[in-house]
Write a protein that binds this DNA or RNA. Structure first.
Length: 271
DNA sequence: ATGGGCACCTGGCTGC
DNA sequence: TGCAGCCAGGTGCCCA
């Protein structure tokens, strides 16, 4: 489900409730996630204070006094802040009970998410160490886009989903960024010129930034820390709009498959 | 090194 | 109504 804007919206929603709080207890209701929740997790977290909630790509980093909880929402995960006595629901996996009387609850129907504790530098963790630069930071620009596309024959859409080259962009925002950059998704990465790379880098930053300001995209089931959907779906130009008129030129939007994922584009606006 | 495909899961929808 | 088939916001891993 969540791409960078949804993860960032979640981070902003939970941080004010977590920062400075102490984790009193941890309840693991269902340890089955992408990797099983470590049976030692509860004893590792108990009594630790939350120093900050950070984000790296689509990972959330809950910085604690003696370590870090690394969480990923996968395709269907959500984190909510709830009063302690809130009844559990299907697919609730774990609760962090805080000294404030609130609970951070992780729900994930498809179980592609994860929850890992490390006492080392989380950025050096094998899952995070090789991730590409943050797309909203200064080192992600036209020159970077140009450099990583030089030798690659893959379609630019597929490249945008490669987390070792670009992070934070998932299937929705890959199509949306290419529409805004006016580039066809099937273009070979290495065929793109510097100006086109500049348009893509700029489009990625703009679409992610706009989506964060709208609280993310809810198509089916994404909810923020308060359980509310995001508002960006109404601003999508192409995603899930197959055969509907392009919002810019009225040409029917096309849907194709690339790497077993759907891609949407306007054959008129994108070249 | 690069790229393609599969795997991991549940749930919702469509069509017979 | 039941059931099979297909699709869905991610990404690690294996193979050519």
């Amino acid at each position: 489900m969540p791409e960078l804007p949804e993860v960032e919206t979640t981070r902003r929603g939970i941080e004010p409730h977590l920062k400075g709080r102490i984790i009193r207890t941890v309840h693991v209701h269902d340890a089955r996630l992408r990797w099983p929740v470590d049976p030692k997790l509860a004893s590792q977290l108990r009594g630790q204070r939350v120093l900050a909630v950070e984000r790296r790509a689509k990972y959330l980093l809950i910085r604690l006094g003696r370590g870090t909880l690394i969480m990923h929402l996968g395709m269907s995960g959500s984190l909510r802040i709830l009063p302690q006595r809130t009844a559990r629901q299907r697919h609730d996996h774990l609760d962090l009970w805080l000294d404030s009387g609130q609970v951070l609850r992780f729900n994930d129907p498809r179980r592609f998410g994860c929850c890992l504790y490390t006492s080392d530098d989380p950025l050096a963790h094998p899952l995070l160490a090789k991730l590409a630069p943050e797309p909203l930071h200064g080192d992600f620009d036209a020159a970077y886009m140009h450099r990583i596309t030089r030798r690659r024959r893959v379609a630019i859409k597929s490249l945008l989903l490669n987390g070792q080259l670009i992070t934070g962009v998932g299937n929705i925002y890959a199509s949306e960024a290419l529409f805004r950059a006016r580039i066809r998704p099937r273009r070979a990465a290495r065929s793109l010129g510097l100006k086109e790379c500049a348009r893509i880098a700029s489009a990625i930053r703009r679409v992610l930034g706009s989506a964060i300001r709208a609280g993310g995209t809810t198509l089916r089931d994404y909810v923020n820390a308060e359980g509310m959907p995001g508002d960006f779906a109404v601003k999508l130009y192409v995603y899930e709009r197959a055969a509907l008129p392009c919002r810019r030129c009225r040409t029917p939007i096309r849907q194709i498959t690339q790497g077993q994922r759907s891609t949407y584009y306007c054959p008129e606006c994108q070249r």
